[in-house]
């Protein structure tokens, strides 16, 4: 399939940059409202019901308007430049990573051949911006949050990368478009899609490790230690308010989506329809891809509203003594499987 548009002129660059941004913004509005509705459902209550009429659909828009109007407070002793800069840097990092995500069979922001590598590298900047925010706030709780986040994200990047590597071993390509195209078709037993998760039993293990790691990477419960509300007040976000805080929120949701979409590409066939040629094509492939991503996001929300939070030492224990050895053993096993079959 050679449907990828060539980006040459400035207007077309801007257009292509606008597409993921629109997706992120619309998704964030829906996801914040959705999370509150899901939380309400799980907790036997209604969630937002008033704003906009039908089930409070306009709640996140109202929240956004409120946040825009809020006073921009910068603590007196904060490091002003870093304090102002951190939220935007955080959002920029997760936004930039969307460039290599193949949203549909005919759209990818930048079809580079080191897509996975680029994505993992760019998301590492998130850590930096969180430490920046934590340190610049000149607040001990923020600093603790920032430090926790550094330790957590650096640690969990190892199992994430190791599991991504297992998929690379199978696919042999770092280009996410190629990885997705390799998963087309329904050849297993004649009807099961050729998605990687169905191709190799060890990839199921890899997916589980990958999912746990992305929970930690995107600071979701049970690994939401950098902002753990009941311990560190709000962690690195403690001193932020108004739009800057909203940027953190947006980046966090964007990060959630990004990692979920990465999971969908690597394990669940990306934009491939589960029914082979049925309901495929540029629009339907976009639909399937977002559906897969949002399902993973939903599972993340579900977990958040069910489980308590781990402690910082237990978090490290899970990573270094369970997930990392397991993911490397799994990598070897996947490689052996590929060698034999």
């Amino acid at each position: 399939m050679n449907t990828i548009v060539n980006i040459t002129s400035l207007p077309s660059i801007l257009l292509h940059a606008a597409i993921p941004l629109t997706i992120i913004l619309v998704y964030a509005l829906v996801a914040i409202w959705g999370e509150r509705k899901i939380a309400g459902f799980i907790q036997d209550r209604l969630g937002p019901m008033r704003v906009g009429g039908f089930h409070g659909w306009a709640q996140s828009i109202a929240d956004l308007l409120k946040l825009i109007q809020k006073e921009d407070i910068i603590p007196t002793d904060a490091s002003r430049f870093l304090f102002k800069f951190a939220p935007f840097m955080m959002f920029a990092a997760s936004y930039a990573a969307f460039a290599v995500i193949p949203f549909s069979s005919s759209y990818i922001g930048s079809n580079i051949n080191i897509g996975v590598f680029y994505l993992l590298a760019v998301t590492s900047i998130l850590t930096l911006s969180i430490i920046m925010a934590g340190w610049a706030s000149n607040n001990k709780w923020s600093l603790l949050g920032g430090m926790r986040s550094a330790a957590q994200m650096v640690s969990y990047e190892v199992p994430t990368i190791a599991t991504v590597l297992t998929v690379i071993v199978v696919s042999g390509s770092l280009n996410l478009m190629t990885v997705t195209e390799m998963q087309s078709g329904n050849d297993i037993l004649g009807f099961i899609p050729n998605w990687f998760i169905f191709q190799n039993p060890f990839l199921i293990v890899a997916f589980i490790i990958f999912f746990i790691s992305i929970l930690a990477e995107s600071h979701r419960v049970p690994f939401d230690l950098p902002e753990s509300e009941s311990e560190l007040v709000a962690g690195y976000q403690t001193e932020y308010s108004g739009m800057r805080w909203a940027m953190f929120m947006l980046a966090e949701y964007a990060d959630m989506l990004l990692l979920s979409l990465l999971g969908a590409v690597l394990f669940f066939g990306g934009w491939n329809s589960p029914f082979g040629e049925f309901l495929s094509g540029p629009f339907w492939s976009f639909f399937w891809f977002m559906l897969k991503g949002l399902l993973l996001v939903f599972v993340m929300m579900w977990i958040r509203w069910t489980l308590p939070r781990y402690r910082v030492d237990q978090l490290m224990h899970i990573c270094w003594s369970i997930l990392i050895p397991l993911s490397f053993i799994n990598l070897v096993l996947v490689a052996l499987w590929e060698l034999i079959f």
Binding site: D44, L307, R309
Partner: peptide, 16 residues
Amino acid sequence: FGLDLGAFTPFLYCFT
């Protein structure tokens, strides 16, 4: 107590 440990949902069940 659950809320302190990050479990939000039991808190609301108890409140009901």
